[in-house]
């Protein structure tokens, strides 16, 4: 009687471990080249330097208020942020070539708890060569580009949350 229980328990543990690491649909692996460096300020003038975030996973998200999928995706990023602590994974939003007014009024309505860096002339976005807007990259603790999300994704879905939690368990 004990053996089947042990086998079942082992099976469960193994399955869960594998499932946790399963890459959700829409997330494509990248070749691990170094993420282009940037130092950008938010609307309050507070600067974020990507290099300073080494040592943890970073979700870098490029967006613009005029893009439809961005509007749908942004609240899911906010909800994901509520579930994965900043200490486990940093999230950096980069607005592409819009004004403070546009960003302020958009985020105020769509995702009031989020803040965005401002890529006023769009040059940082261009350097990252996203596949379109919105685009999200997952940068590993060593600063390498590891995944890109294809189009807008539901970041607070169980599959994505599981995967992100699994990533944060990886050793730097």
């Amino acid at each position: 009687m004990k053996l089947p229980v042990i086998i079942l328990a082992l099976l469960f543990v193994t399955t869960s471990a594998v499932a946790d690491g399963v890459r959700p649909p829409g997330l494509m692996p990248l070749d691990g080249r170094m993420a282009p460096a940037f130092k950008l300020a938010d609307m309050d003038g507070k600067t974020t330097d990507l290099v300073q975030l080494r040592g943890q996973w970073v979700l870098v998200h490029f967006w613009a208020s005029w893009c439809g999928p961005c509007r749908r995706e942004m609240p899911t990023l906010q909800r994901m942020r509520e579930q994965i602590p900043v200490t486990d994974m940093a999230m950096v939003l980069v607005n592409t070539a819009e004004t403070d007014e546009e960003v302020f009024s958009f985020l105020g309505v769509v995702a009031p708890d989020l803040e965005s860096l401002m890529d006023a002339d769009g040059q940082v976005t261009a350097k990252w060569r996203p596949r379109g807007l919105p685009s999200s990259f997952l940068v590993d603790p060593k600063g390498r580009l590891r995944y890109i999300a294809l189009g807008g994704r539901q970041w607070d879905s169980p599959a994505y949350l599981r995967f992100l939690r699994h990533l944060t368990l990886e050793q730097p």
Partner: peptide, 28 residues
């Protein structure tokens, strides 16, 4: 035209060369 506006215009265009993965949409 300011660089920001050029960038915005660029993002509204269909990409000049890009792969499209299974299930992926693209518009521009």
């Amino acid at each position: 035209v300011p660089l920001g506006s050029r960038a915005t215009f660029g993002w509204t265009q269909l990409p000049e060369s890009r792969d499209l993965q299974h299930g992926e949409p693209v518009g521009g």
